[in-house]
């Protein structure tokens, strides 16, 4: 799942080098540089890729503190 999320991040950022640079501990805002519009785009892509639905109202920015934490969050979402 993590590799697929990295590919989606790279797609949102339009930066192929991210595939090799993003690690478990990368902060999605501080290290990857996703802004909030890009994060919404990433979430929409993640929803599509994994058939899940994110609740935007309750989404915590702490889920973005590392790729591993974001992956765990996505993995914990119920499949549609």
């Amino acid at each position: 799942m993590q590799d697929r999320i990295i590919r989606l991040i790279s797609q949102v950022k339009d930066d192929a080098t991210l595939v090799a640079r993003v690690t478990d501990s990368s902060h999605l805002v501080d290290d990857v540089g996703l802004d909030f519009l890009q994060l919404i785009n990433l979430i929409l892509l993640v929803e599509e890729e994994f058939s899940v639905q994110v609740d935007f109202e309750s989404f915590q920015v702490q889920h973005l503190s590392s790729l591993a934490r974001f992956t765990d969050y996505v993995a914990g979402l119920p499949r549609e």
Binding site: F36, L39, I40, I43, L44, F56, E57, F59, V61
Partner: peptide
């Protein structure tokens, strides 16, 4: 609204 994320810090 369109989807958005809560960011008090921003």
């Amino acid at each position: 609204r369109l989807p958005s994320l809560m960011d008090r810090n921003a």
